[in-house]
Protein backbone atom coordinates (compact mmCIF):
# COMPACT_ATOMS: atom_id res chain seq x y z
CA UNK A 1 0.00 0.00 0.00
CA UNK A 2 1.52 3.22 -1.12
CA UNK A 3 1.36 6.44 0.84
CA UNK A 4 -0.29 8.19 -2.09
CA UNK A 5 -3.54 6.30 -1.48
CA UNK A 6 -3.63 7.46 2.12
CA UNK A 7 -2.77 11.03 1.28
CA UNK A 8 -5.37 11.37 -1.43
CA UNK A 9 -8.04 9.68 0.66
CA UNK A 10 -7.32 12.07 3.49
CA UNK A 11 -7.39 15.12 1.21
CA UNK A 12 -10.69 14.09 -0.39
CA UNK A 13 -12.13 13.36 3.04
CA UNK A 14 -11.22 16.84 4.30
CA UNK A 15 -12.75 18.38 1.17
CA UNK A 16 -15.96 16.41 1.72
CA UNK A 17 -16.12 17.63 5.32
CA UNK A 18 -15.91 21.22 4.11
CA UNK A 19 -18.53 20.60 1.45
CA UNK A 20 -20.92 19.30 4.10
CA UNK A 21 -20.14 22.21 6.40
CA UNK A 22 -20.99 24.55 3.54
CA UNK A 23 -24.24 22.79 2.69
CA UNK A 24 -25.27 22.79 6.33
CA UNK A 25 -24.54 26.48 6.66
CA UNK A 26 -26.64 27.29 3.61
CA UNK A 27 -29.46 25.07 4.84
CA UNK A 28 -29.59 26.82 8.21
CA UNK A 29 -30.23 30.07 6.39
CA UNK A 30 -26.89 31.69 7.09
CA UNK A 31 -26.59 32.97 3.54
CA UNK A 32 -30.13 34.35 3.33
CA UNK A 33 -29.26 37.59 5.03
CA UNK A 34 -25.67 38.60 4.53
CA UNK A 35 -25.97 42.13 5.85
CA UNK A 36 -27.54 42.14 9.33
CA UNK A 37 -24.95 39.88 11.03
CA UNK A 38 -22.20 42.27 9.99
CA UNK A 39 -23.94 45.03 11.92
CA UNK A 40 -25.05 42.82 14.79
CA UNK A 41 -21.56 41.65 15.66
CA UNK A 42 -20.63 45.21 16.59
CA UNK A 43 -23.36 45.53 19.22
CA UNK A 44 -22.44 43.19 22.08
CA UNK A 45 -21.35 45.48 24.89
CA UNK A 46 -23.47 48.49 24.07
CA UNK A 47 -25.69 48.03 27.09
CA UNK A 48 -22.78 48.27 29.52
CA UNK A 49 -21.66 51.40 27.79
CA UNK A 50 -25.04 52.97 28.14
CA UNK A 51 -25.20 52.47 31.90
CA UNK A 52 -21.74 53.95 32.22
CA UNK A 53 -22.93 56.89 30.30
CA UNK A 54 -25.98 57.30 32.44
CA UNK A 55 -23.95 57.34 35.62
CA UNK A 56 -21.68 59.86 34.05
CA UNK A 57 -24.51 62.22 33.25
CA UNK A 58 -25.97 61.60 36.69
CA UNK A 59 -22.72 62.62 38.25
CA UNK A 60 -22.65 65.72 36.12
CA UNK A 61 -26.09 66.58 37.31
CA UNK A 62 -25.07 66.12 40.93
CA UNK A 63 -22.18 68.48 40.48
Amino acid sequence: MSVIYILITVSIFVAVVFLFAFIKAVKSGQYDDDYTPSVRMLFDDELVKSTNKLTKTDKQKMN
Binding site: A15, F22, I23, V26, G29
Partner: peptide, 21 residues
Protein backbone atom coordinates in the same frame (compact mmCIF):
# COMPACT_ATOMS: atom_id res chain seq x y z
CA UNK B 1 -36.76 29.78 0.08
CA UNK B 2 -35.21 28.11 -2.93
CA UNK B 3 -31.53 27.58 -2.26
CA UNK B 4 -30.91 24.75 -4.73
CA UNK B 5 -28.73 26.86 -6.99
CA UNK B 6 -26.27 27.57 -4.17
CA UNK B 7 -26.12 23.86 -3.30
CA UNK B 8 -25.50 22.99 -6.93
CA UNK B 9 -22.78 25.59 -7.29
CA UNK B 10 -21.17 24.36 -4.05
CA UNK B 11 -21.12 20.76 -5.20
CA UNK B 12 -19.86 21.78 -8.64
CA UNK B 13 -17.01 23.74 -7.09
CA UNK B 14 -16.07 20.82 -4.87
CA UNK B 15 -15.91 18.47 -7.86
CA UNK B 16 -14.13 20.96 -10.08
CA UNK B 17 -11.45 21.86 -7.53
CA UNK B 18 -10.57 18.30 -6.62
CA UNK B 19 -10.57 17.06 -10.19
CA UNK B 20 -8.28 19.91 -11.22
CA UNK B 21 -5.78 18.91 -8.53
Amino acid sequence: VDRSLIYKAGVAFFCFGNIML
